[in-house]
Amino acid sequence: MAADPRLAHARQQQQKLTATPPPPPPPISAQPDSTKMGLDSTNDERPQSDIVAKDGFKLKFCTVCASNQNRSMEAHLRLALSSLPVISFGTGTLVRLPGPSIHQPNVYSFNSTTYRAIHAELSSQNAALYNQNGLLPMLARNLNIKSYPERFQDWIPGKPRLDHSTDKGAPGTESGVVDVIITCEERCFDAVLDDLLNKGGKLNRPVHVFNVDIRDNHEEALVGGRAILDLALRLNECAAQEREIHGSEGWEGAGRSRAGFDERVPDILGEWQERWPNLPAMWTLAWF
């Protein structure tokens, strides 16, 4: 049976409520239900447990795109709203935003220019234009998430991030490391791998790096954000299960559900890819 593990919580609740076992819940088909398909051709039925239990185990996430503005921030917000610990970065050399024409992009430096400053500058430049193309709403969203775009290559993993405590999704990321990095473009995936290799894996800490290919526009960022949240929830659930199994049977258990988190990642990703066929994914286990 291809049970949707996202619904595990719901099933457990159901079982607790009814003392006598009712007829088993109908198996959830792996095929997308065409009556419930969203515009992105994926099943829009959300798992009920979008928000992770407060005191439960949580993986720490990091979302990465080119400029730390659109895709990574959309995903950052999504994960933060589901109370997952999350930080976000860009891999570009500079923050690039569309300008009045394709040849005049607005360029800002990472780690210093705040979203608020960019918002102020653009709205004084041409509020109508930047409202119309969605830049100002995007920046308004971003400045409520954290204060400034950060560059991945300048990040020192393991350096405490206590100064980011007011960012959305900050609780849990104080130690400055994450368990999962999700990039939004192959270019960024390559940049992240390259940078991690350059940093030399001095922390000896494994990190799962995913790439979810998302086109850089507002609509696709929304779709991608949902897909990333879906992936994150699945991963988190699986990692939490690993913490539940302990004691001697944790080692010898043969069943798939007994397997640890790391080795199930390929399965989770494969399953996820079937659900999101339009967002080609990649993954690797890298080192901090």
Binding site: E186, F189, P266, G270, E271, Q273, A281, W283, T284
Partner: peptide, 26 residues
């Protein structure tokens, strides 16, 4: 070729490439 094996193959290939590209660049 399942969806899982495709993703895994792509991932391994990309990881190999990233490693070698890093060496080339350095």
């Amino acid at each position: 070729m399942t969806s899982r094996s495709k993703v895994m193959m792509k991932s391994i290939e990309r990881t190999t490439r990233a490693l070698l590209m890093n060496i080339l660049k350095r």
